[in-house]
Each structure stands twice: as structure tokens, then as C-alpha cells.
Design a protein around this nucleic acid. Structure first.
Lengths: 218, 218
DNA sequence: CGGCAGTGTTACCGGAGGTAACACCCCCAG
DNA sequence: CTGGGGGTGTTACCTCCGGTAACACTGCCG
């Protein structure tokens, strides 16, 4: 009598197993073992391996499940007919809102902290790559960057992805400000506010030329 | 007769072990096992554990060793008396040159790929946090951001760190361009070139207002 | 009926990190 | 000379993990 009367079969069964994996992973953290997941599902290891191949397969399935919706939303937002700044802020907001609404899942995907066997953090890499590629594509399609366009858009796609990832991570842990303000702070960075800001008087002395009496010549 | 005549002792010995660990890690990748490292050093596991406590201790020692110099160099570059754009480019160049010169080490620190037990990627986290804090401090000291200064500088410190990390990672794998060009691409992003670039004609139709006949009124 | 596609199991493997318990060496205090 | 201590090293073992046979039960469909 190994199982309840009629265990589901095929795709539904797979969903059940993913649900169990989800629960364990949220309880035990990213280091959850295959044994623990199997136990939570009321079965033993080999079944998991039949369904997902290996641990990476399972983690990947979990990751896809959690990131696919976000990816679609960001893809859509990247192509919305808005003024550029509004579009960028919208994309940023969608991302921050997503990690804000499911912080545990987000941490699972990004922080394979405790004795993590065969990293879970890597499972997020494909999603990040996709986001980077979407940004790259959007930049290429929407903005005129001249001859350097391909290189710049690819570089920037990765750079912006990493920027938002790191900043979002910090924001989620520290919560230093409400979400809209964070969105503005990041958009401001992309809009060159750091480069355009005035030099502080206390830092003037360090500069090589142009004492404060210099004209407005750049 | 287990050892050569006189095996060193104390701190020098520790350095030797770290050297061996370095070699193995560069040969076998981030998943190098304690057994392999011990073998490379010509000894067995328990000695490693005596010196470093556990695997994390060893990885942390390796990380410190590789990042301390880079950290110092970046800290210095962040406070050099240069024009702002030059200073930023210098910092970017120092980072990219560092990861370029020791790609295996960099990958070890950032990509705990194969059956990584007890993550090595985490060992890099403190160094990244330090870099972010240095950037934050530099921005606070050098640039006038008004009332939002503290929040913006903290956010930007993390954001820029993540941006450079992600972009550098991609650059190291793909090598899409020589280093100076990458430096410029990243500085351009921080200088708002993405925000300032013209809209492509093909994307104009999507916009809510302002058909192509609009004047030069930015 | 017979097989096939699922479900499940127990038992095992190799290798990982980590830990006793023990042995050697050398130098220095008594 | 004697005898520790603090360093070096070892072998043998533990637990746990990912992963894999090999086998057993169920139900459906030709």
C-alpha cells in the first residue's frame, strides 16, 4: 500500500512535486536536499530524478515557474508606447514590485547561502540573461547609438541588469525608502544625474585645474 | 619519513597552503575539493582544516588574498585628483584589468558552478559590499546631490557595483571588445548617454505624441 | 490475456566535507 | 639528560548528498 488510492499522473503529478519542492525550499532554504523534497512530497528520491533528471533540472523548473511571469511583464513593459523615462521607470517598478511581493522566493533564487550543494544561484542566471537580452533588444530597436550601437546595447543590457539586481537586493534587505523613490533613484542614475551633479566645494581643492573662479566652460 | 626534511611552520606554512589551493583552484575550477587541494600541497585533509577551520575559511582566505590589493587600488583611484569622468574611467579600468589578468580566480570567486558545497560565491560578497561602500563614500564626499544625497549615494554605490560586476562578467566571457572601449561604454552609460540618445525613426510611430515633424525642442 | 507506461520501493555507489585518534619532530625549560 | 608543548603529519572513520540500479505494483488499452 505504498500510495494513496490514486496518485495523479503525468503533468499534474509534476506540478505536485514542484509544489512540494517549493514548500521545502522555502522552509529549509536553498540548501534543501533531494531527500527532504522527496519526503515532503511523500515519496522517495528516484521519482524526483525520473521527473527532473537531476537536481539542476528541479531547480531550473522551480526557477522557470517563478520567473516566467516576471519576464513576460518586463518584456511587455520594455516595449510599451511611453516616453522613454516613463518606460524605464515602469520597467524598474515592475521588477522591484515583483521582488517586493515575494521576497522569500527572490532570496532563494539569488542567495544560495547555507551549505548549498550544486548552486541554486546559477539557476537564476538564465533568467538574468534573458532580461539582459530583452533590454539589449529594446535599446537596439528604440534608440539611435550610431556605429557603436551593437556593442553599447549589449554592454548596457548586462550592465543595467546587474545594476538593478544589486540595487534591488540591497533595497529589499534594507528598505531604505518606498518603492517609487527607489525607482526614481535608479532612473536618475541612468539619466546621468551622477555625472551632471555639481562638485562639492570641499572636493574642489583636489581638482587639477579650474579653481572656483573658473568660468562656466564645461 | 612523511615530509621533506624541514617543512616550514606557522604563517609561512599557511602561505604555502594557500598557494597550493590557488593552483588547484585555477586548474580544477571553483569546485576543487579539499582532498585535491591537500594532495596538491602534498599533505592530507586534516591539516587544511587545522589551518582554515572549514572550507569556507579556506575560500575566505583565498578571497581576501586576491581582493585586498584590488580593493586598495580602487579605493585610491576613487579619490584621485582627476576630472570626474577621468576618475570614473580610471576606476573602471582598474577593475576590468584586475579580472582580466586573473580570470580563473575571478570565476572562482563569482561562479561557484560545479557541485559547489557551501557556496564560494558568498565569499566575494564582503568585498563587493566594501566596494559599494567606497563608491558611496566617494560620491557623498565629492558630489553635491542636495537633500537626497545620502539615499542616492547609497543606492548608486550598490547599483554601480552591480552594474560593473555584471558587465565585467559578460565582457570577460565574451571579450566583445578591448578593455578601453569597455571602459568607455560603461562610463557612457553612467553619463546618461542612453537617456540622451535620439529615438530611432522606426520607433517613432510607437510614441504617444510628437511625430517626426517636431522641432528641435528636445 | 499481455504488455506498456506510469507509479512506487529498497539498496547501493562514489565522493564530498569534516573529525577523531594517534605518531613524529624539534626546541627549550627544568 | 629529561620531558613537555606546539607544531608537523598520518590513517581511518563518520554523515550526508547526488545519483543509479533493480525490482514491484497498478491500470489501461489493444
Amino acid at each position: 500500500m505504498p500510495t494513496a488510492p490514486n496518485p495523479p499522473t503525468g503533468e499534474p503529478r509534476r506540478e505536485q512535486l514542484l509544489n512540494a519542492a517549493d514548500r521545502v525550499v522555502q522552509r529549509d532554504g536553498p540548501g534543501a536536499s533531494m531527500n527532504a523534497i522527496a519526503a515532503e512530497a511523500g515519496i522517495t528520491k528516484p521519482i524526483l530524478y525520473r521527473h527532473f533528471g537531476d537536481r539542476n533540472g528541479l531547480i531550473k523548473a522551480l526557477t522557470d515557474r517563478h520567473t516566467s511571469g516576471l519576464l513576460d511583464a518586463m518584456r511587455a513593459a520594455l516595449n510599451e508606447p511611453l516616453e522613454r523615462r516613463d518606460r524605464v521607470e515602469h520597467v524598474l517598478d515592475i521588477y522591484l514590485a515583483a521582488i517586493e511581493s515575494r521576497p522569500q522566493v527572490y532570496r532563494l533564487l539569488t542567495h544560495p547561502e547555507p551549505g548549498d550543494p550544486t548552486g541554486a544561484g546559477n539557476a537564476l542566471a538564465p533568467a538574468l540573461r534573458q532580461i539582459a537580452e530583452e533590454i539589449t533588444k529594446a535599446v537596439q530597436v528604440q534608440v539611435d547609438l550610431g556605429a557603436d550601437g551593437p556593442l553599447l546595447s549589449e554592454t548596457w543590457g548586462r550592465a543595467i541588469t546587474g545594476m538593478v539586481l544589486a540595487a534591488g537586493d540591497w533595497w529589499l534587505e534594507q528598505r531604505p525608502c518606498p518603492r517609487p523613490r527607489m525607482v526614481r533613484a535608479l532612473a536618475d542614475l541612468l539619466w546621468g544625474r551622477l555625472a551632471a551633479a555639481a562638485v562639492l566645494p570641499s572636493a574642489m581643492a583636489q581638482l587639477p585645474v579650474a579653481p572656483p573662479s573658473g568660468g562656466p566652460m564645461e
